[in-house]
Amino acid sequence: MQRISAQFLARRIAGHSGRMLLLHCADSDSTGNDPAALPAPLATAAEDGRLVVSRLSAVPERKELAAALDSSPGRVIVVGSDTALSAVMTRLMRTENLEREVAFVTPEAGPATAVHGLPHSDEAAVLALEGSARPANLARDESGQAIVGRAVWRGADRGALDGQVYADSQHVFTGTTLFVELVPMSGEPGVRVATAEKHGLLRRRKWFEARAVQIGTPGILIERDGVLAKRPVKRASMYKHVEPMLLVRP
């Protein structure tokens, strides 16, 4: 991808009203050095005064995230991991602010970029500055947390999982499996789910699509966008939220 000059970038983003809010979600390294530099297009826009930049933890805490989101009303550009984007969307969902535009810039492709067909690195930065936001499905679970890339249900002792899973009225499985993987869908009905088992001659996993997926189990640990819960639960669900998010996407 060609490097973009400051003058060209400034002309292209001049049409956006107000300043955008950039949330740089990254921890300092073990020596205390600052986190990795912003992608060049975002650094240029920040120097040009078009971005309000807020540095947050890699996994933003509720209070720091609330303060940052309140600091500027413009489009939110999340620079970080799926975990950071999940935290932002959870906050916007719980505060009933899903009408706010959100863009996602991550250094490498991952589950969230795959779900919504998003670019990464500099290309994602340009899209965040220039692109248009459109409604996109938002998945959540029973605890009120947004899932933007992937959730995994695992055994409570980090071994095999025992339980029964349904995708809407479809029976997914009853018994024991290593894990159950759940992925949001950009289209309808909203959620995809599969167990660890592979079927058929080609040894492929069987995926089910539904608006809601639920499990009954003696106990599981839930991994949400890369973060594993500390306490097991006996029931869990993941489903399409009633309101979409406004996501900047191609």
Rank of each mutant, 00 (worst) to 15 (best):
V102Y: 04
A128H: 08
G117K: 06
A128S: 12
V115T: 08
S132Y: 11
L98P: 13
D141N: 15
L118F: 00
H116Y: 15
L65S: 02
S143Q: 14
R100C: 07
V78L: 10
L129F: 01
A139Q: 05
V76T: 14
V102W: 02
E101H: 08
I147E: 00
E142D: 15
A128G: 13
A139D: 02
E142F: 10
V78I: 07
D122R: 03
P107V: 09
V88D: 09
G80I: 02
A124M: 02
E130T: 15
V115E: 09
F104E: 01
R150H: 00
G149D: 00
G117R: 04
G131V: 04
A84C: 13
S71C: 05
T90V: 10
L118R: 00
L138V: 03
A103I: 05
A66Y: 00
A133F: 09
V79P: 01
L129E: 00
L65V: 04
L65G: 01
H116N: 12
P119Q: 09
E64N: 02
A109R: 15
A109G: 14
H116K: 03
A114E: 13
P119I: 11
T90C: 06
A112Q: 11
L92P: 06
R62D: 12
K63R: 14
Q145E: 14
L98H: 12
A139C: 11
P119M: 10
E99P: 08
R140S: 06
L85H: 09
A139T: 07
S72K: 09
G117S: 07
L65R: 03
S71G: 05
S132C: 11
S132Q: 14
T90D: 07
R140T: 11
P119T: 11
R134K: 12
E64S: 10
R91K: 13
A112R: 09
A87F: 07
S143D: 15
Q145C: 09
T90E: 11
P107K: 08
A87L: 12
F104D: 05
K63A: 15
E108Y: 14
